[in-house]
Amino acid sequence: MHSFRHLIMFSALALFGPPLAAESQIFTSQEANFRLETVAESLEHPWSLAFLPDGSMLVTERAGRLRVIRNGELSPKPVAGLPASAVTGQGGLFDVVLHPGFEKNRILFLSYAHRTSEGMTTRVARANFDKDRLENVTVIFEALPRSGTSRHFGARMAFDASGYLYISVGDRGDKDRAQDTEDDAGGVHRITDSGEAAPGNPGLDDPGINNTLFTWGNRNIQGMSVHPITGDIWTHEHGPRGGDEINVLRAGTNYGWPEITYGIGYSGLPITLDTEKDGMAQPLHYWDPSIAPSGMAFYTGLEFPEWQGNLFVGALKMQKLVRLKLKDRGVTEEEDLLVKLAERIRDVRTGPDGALWLLTDSPQGKVYRVVPAQ
């Protein structure tokens, strides 16, 4: 793991200015002053953000809409041609990810909850984005079996440097499914851009493992990011009461849920007495109590040189942005930001403009741009 020797310590959050309008507040710390710019608002539970080559952006709304932000303005009409999402419970439209060759092929990928008479599941569709419309929409992944629950869909996605797509699928509220390698729930799947199992997947040589599975023992991953130096896929996942985890994905690795956890059940009773077992990976970092993490990004921009290489994680329950300083694949410093903003942070991205971008999870959700205060 690369050692971030040139990072500067960033701590002691303080807040100045009026308590209502985020844009009028200056957020300060030992090494940086920053503020928030509202780029778009009145979005219904925005879930994911993607930056297009022409400078515009795509934003998903969990209610089943894909929106375009162009020239700093939210287009009033949603993108047409989307597949139908099952908007119930935690379900709906989730992630949007561009194909690595998007500038030429205009291909993107959407994850969403889908329902039939057999129940609900996590699906991924591939489509061409053309003039604010989706064409050639094709389902390339569907987690099976379906179930009647409307929670723990996972649904975060990311491409690695080889062009393979990683898709998280939650345990769907049935914890034992995460240890069943013939069940698609409770793990991360790795596929080609057309939906085939990616070469090197552990199940290709083992009939007891579904061939798209890359890892298992994952409860509900809602943060996924590519390390800017190593190319590793990093994830975070929700624990129950405590035990939210950050992990680095390794093929064929069991991350332990529910056999090991640093959390307890919602009833207050233990899920297990074990926090480690042979053959099960330990988290790189965990939270207890739970912060309900969602969205995650390594900061790679130039607007804040002191943040270079830091990892930013949104928090829903605790309504904050967490900054983690890393060294040798470990967390050396943790700081809570935006705690007085009182917003559920759903997604975090580093933009091509060098700013940090945030989505807030509410019926009147916002797109925020984090910029230097000066």
Rank of each mutant, 00 (worst) to 15 (best):
K175C: 06
E103F: 12
D183R: 01
P76M: 04
G89K: 09
I264R: 11
A155S: 15
L311F: 03
L302H: 13
L269A: 08
S29K: 01
M280W: 07
T350C: 13
G17Y: 10
L359C: 07
T116M: 02
F51G: 06
S85H: 03
H189A: 15
V371K: 09
G186V: 12
T360S: 13
Y255M: 01
F4V: 03
A373Q: 08
L165D: 05
E259T: 03
G55E: 14
T350H: 12
I221F: 04
S362P: 15
A292S: 15
I191N: 07
G268H: 03
V226F: 05
V139K: 02
Q30V: 03
A40S: 12
W257A: 08
G186I: 10
A198F: 14
Y286S: 02
I345N: 00
A127Q: 02
N310C: 10
E335M: 06
S56D: 14
R151N: 11
G187R: 12
L20G: 11
P202W: 14
D328Q: 10
M280C: 02
R250K: 14
N247S: 05
P372R: 01
I8A: 10
F153E: 08
L316K: 00
T272L: 01
S225N: 06
L249E: 11
D193P: 05
G81R: 01
A292E: 08
H99C: 09
G208L: 13
G81P: 04
E276C: 02
V331W: 07
G200E: 13
G314N: 10
D347V: 01
E61Y: 09
L358F: 11
A198C: 04
F298G: 04
A355V: 01
F312I: 00
E333C: 04
F51N: 05
D174R: 02
L316N: 04
F304Q: 00
V169H: 13
A14I: 09
R146G: 03
L341Q: 11
P202Q: 09
P352A: 01
L249T: 10
M296T: 01
L58R: 01
W47F: 15
A315C: 13
L204S: 12
H227N: 08
P78V: 07
E245V: 13
F159D: 00
D184P: 02
T215H: 12
T332I: 07
Y164S: 14
E23T: 09
K175I: 10
D278A: 13
K366C: 09
T60H: 10
R172W: 08
I167K: 11
L337M: 11
R65G: 00
S48L: 00
A22S: 08
F129K: 00
K320W: 02
